[in-house]
Amino acid sequence: MTDTLFDPYEDDPPPALGIVLDVDRGSLPYALIHGEALVACAAWALGEAGVTPLDNGITWDAVRRADEPVVLHDALCPMTPADFIASCVGRALAEDVIVVGTRPVTDTIKRIADGLVGETVDREGLISIVSPVVLPPSVVSMLADEPGTDLVALVASLATTHRVVLVEAPASARRVTSAEEIAVLEALTAG
C-alpha cells in the first residue's frame, strides 16, 4: 500500500545528503531532456529540495558520521519534483522510516516457465521503484558500506530489518530506460 505526500515542515526542510546514481546505467544518464543531461536534472532536483549532493570523493564513513538522512536519486528519474523529494525526507525523519518513491506498473507482465511465455500477472499488486529512496540517519549509521546502485535490491534487503514506507510519486518521477521514454517524459514535463 502506498501513502500520499507528507510535509511536516512549513519552512526549510532539515539538512540531508544526496547521491545521484548514474553508475551501472550505461550512457543514458548523459542523454538530454529539455536540453540538459538527465544526471544534471537529478542533481538540480536534489539541490532545489534542500538536499546537499555528495561529491564522488566523500567516503561512506564520513557520510555515516554526518548523522543526516541520505537521499538516493536515480539519474534515470530526472524529473522527480523537488517538493516530492523534500516531502520524502521529512517523512523519513519524522517517522524514522525508509521512504521509497513508487509508481504503479502499467506494462503487461507475463510469467515465463520453462522458456515459454505464460499467464498475465495481475498488475494490481505491482509497483515500480523510482526516486527517491530516503534512508533516515538510524539506517545510514547501521550500513557498513555504501548502499549500492540497485534500488530494488537495496529496498528488498533493508525491508527485512527496517520499516519501509512506499509513497506514490507523481508521474513526472517515472524512470526512463530508453531514448523513446525520455521523449515521452520530456513531453509530459514540458511547460
Rank of each mutant, 00 (worst) to 15 (best):
S172G: 01
T59P: 08
P104I: 04
D74E: 12
R64K: 14
A62V: 15
F6G: 07
R163I: 14
R174G: 03
A43Y: 06
W44R: 14
E124C: 13
D7Y: 06
P29E: 06
R123K: 12
A16C: 05
R175H: 04
A159C: 09
D61E: 15
V97N: 01
T189V: 07
V176M: 02
S172K: 00
A42F: 03
D145W: 04
V99Q: 02
L126H: 09
E180P: 04
S141N: 09
G148D: 02
D150L: 02
A66T: 11
P15S: 09
E180K: 09
Y30K: 13
V184S: 13
A92M: 00
H73L: 12
T161I: 10
T160D: 12
E48G: 10
A16M: 04
C77F: 05
V99M: 04
R175A: 00
L116G: 12
D122A: 15
R65F: 15
V139G: 02
D114I: 08
S138H: 07
D11M: 00
V184T: 14
G18N: 07
W60V: 08
R175I: 00
E68Y: 13
T160Q: 14
L32W: 08
D96E: 08
V167F: 04
E10M: 05
P53W: 08
T106E: 09
V70M: 07
E119G: 11
L93R: 01
V89I: 10
G191F: 11
M1F: 15
S87N: 07
P29I: 04
T2V: 13
V121H: 10
S172T: 05
G125L: 11
F84G: 03
D12R: 11
L72D: 03
S178E: 06
S157Q: 11
V70Q: 05
V97P: 02
V152F: 09
I112Q: 01
D96M: 00
R175L: 00
V140H: 03
L76I: 05
E10F: 05
T161G: 08
A94I: 06
L126N: 10
E146S: 10
E95N: 09
E119F: 11
P137A: 05
F6H: 14
P14Y: 06
G125Q: 12
L151H: 02
T149S: 12
V134P: 04
T160K: 15
M79H: 08
V152E: 10
